[in-house]
Amino acid sequence: MLRRVVLALLALTVLVLLADLAGGPTGPIRSAGSAALGPLLRAASPGEVEAESAELIRLRARVAELEGQAQTAKRESALVASAAEHDLEVAPARVVGVGTPDPRGTVRLTIDVGAEDGIQADRAVLDGDGLVGRVVSVGRWTSDVELLGAAGTSVGVRVGQSPGVLGRLSASDPLLDQAPGQLAVTALQEGRITAGDAVRTLGSAGGVPYPAGLPVGSVAEVADAPGRLTASATVEPSADLAAVDVVGVVVSDGQR
């Protein structure tokens, strides 16, 4: 009996996996998971420090909490300044869950804002240092964010001094010798890319998902590939993607 149940469930799981691989309509399954388990993550995320009987423990906890709040306020200030600089309206959020890290590191996060907070899918997510990723699905209370290093991520960018070389930012390029955490940029036109060049978003139609001019990173090393017509290079992201905490979801582009 148990063997039949396991085999049936395995077959069902393989079917769902194949459907997801083929780009089938698996969104409702993810939405159901988000609706059922998202509130659990929100509830389990750290809140107020409870009063302890021992005064010393209470005070130490208070100091730690205040230090954390100061750090959070600092990050929020940087985020607000960055959003104001690019004339964007952002909804602040905190990371409340991380996906199972794969060999490239963490590529998916959950933040504590959702449809109830006016968040929509396919919006850019940034922190005080630069672009972090984009919202890929929105639950009622939480949203999932795909980080820049995720497989299949592709962002149009400009590299270097204005106007900059047009390029395509991706998670990896087989011709590059990338360190973990680094991204890859491939120029789409002839032009010179040098180490240290700033990489900024090219901008999408209507600013969705990516508004123009957001800092993405800087060129770390340019590949020495004589056979290629256009240059490619490794990119060090501006945001520390391994330690994202306070982020902002772009809810409106001020230019519209």
Binding site: T13, V16, L17, G33, A36, T100, R108, T142, D144
Partner: peptide
């Protein structure tokens, strides 16, 4: 549960298998 707990996995069912 891993596949469905936000943010989930990029391929549904991969953790289950």
């Amino acid at each position: 549960l891993v596949d469905l707990t936000p943010p989930g996995t990029d391929l549904l069912g991969i953790s289950a298998l």
